[in-house]
Design a protein around this nucleic acid. Structure first.
Lengths: 161, 161
DNA sequence: GAATCACTACTCGGATAGGGTGTGTCCGAGTATACATGG
DNA sequence: CCATGTATACTCGGACACACCCTATCCGAGTAGTGATTC
């Protein structure tokens, strides 16, 4: 089970957008250059974030992306869902209903216990992601390395000038 | 983020093996026929379970698979890990270290907050899966449809005869 | 009649192709800016 | 000097190839059983 690489890119870009927020819109080229990522593909991820209402896009010169909501109003679950899609990782295809064995009475009503257990686990994962916002991650990062946010903002400011 | 289809097959097959346990080894053909699955591919999944020590394989005529441990000693996490592999879904590639910005002091020591948050969420998922065993799922299935386990065992008994 | 041996049939095991999704790239639609031009 | 129209450059947005991993399949290695053969 692998999560797409775009999730990591999107999360880092969201943090950078948050730190460089009031410096105007940031182009995808700048965001990509900061981490040496392919700009066109990162653009694709930002489009997904835009469709999800996490960032807003400004076309034309002086355009770019900026955070649509405050960092404390964007959860990690929002970002992951925007990139990876809303469907569950474990997909129950109801194979118990298939096969030559006679129809088991009661099967078609109650969901199979396997599916229920898997969904429970995934719900715990989602709950954990939904409980943590961009602001939480930002403050934790700042606590670990106090100088970084200022540097990030400075880099994006000088870069855009 | 999609989980392989083999996980569902492996879990159902483990349950069937547990219910038909003392009826001797069950061939992969029987297990596959019960759910109308491609036998060769299900065999691949069972090989993975065998390598993980969840089932034991018996070659030759009268051979097949049987559960290596008691159902209460096999967690869902064991099965998922055996099929999907031990690596995490979210892979931190340390993109923060890449790019033209000067080396941020302290970055190389503390893991980035994003990775930490994602790992925390995934740990919750793993913990939930590790807390539930095959025996738990079996008893829950039996509670939902009391007749099923007996039928399953009967079907495998008649099929092998 | 009993033991031995070769043979057969059946099973797992790993090596081998095909398809779908993620990954990476490209060019076009749209807009704010800058400049030349006319009043 | 100021307003206006136009050309331009820059941005996002979606459409287009490539690659990798999951899916699916096949054939070979190994073994228990079976029957014939011999003592």
């Amino acid at each position: 089970m692998r999560m797409g690489e775009g999730v990591e890119w999107a999360l880092h870009s969201c943090l950078n957008l948050a730190w460089a927020q009031d410096g105007g819109a940031v182009t995808v080229a700048r965001l990509a250059a900061y981490h040496d990522l392919p700009a066109a593909y990162l653009n694709k991820q930002l489009q997904a974030l835009s469709r999800a209402g996490i960032v807003t896009s400004v076309p034309g010169p002086r355009g770019g992306f900026r955070l649509a909501r405050r960092p404390e109003d964007v959860t990690l679950m929002d970002v992951v869902t925007a990139i990876e899609g809303p469907e569950q990782a474990f997909r129950c295809t109801e194979i118990r209903q298939q096969g030559p064995h006679g129809e088991m009475p009661g099967n078609s009503r109650r969901p199979c216990a396997i599916s229920a257990a898997m969904r429970r686990a995934e719900l715990a994962w989602r709950r954990e992601l939904a409980a943590r916002t961009l602001a939480d991650v930002m403050s934790e990062a700042e606590r670990g390395a106090p100088g970084v946010p200022g540097r990030v903002r400075g880099w994006f400011a000088t870069a855009s000038a």
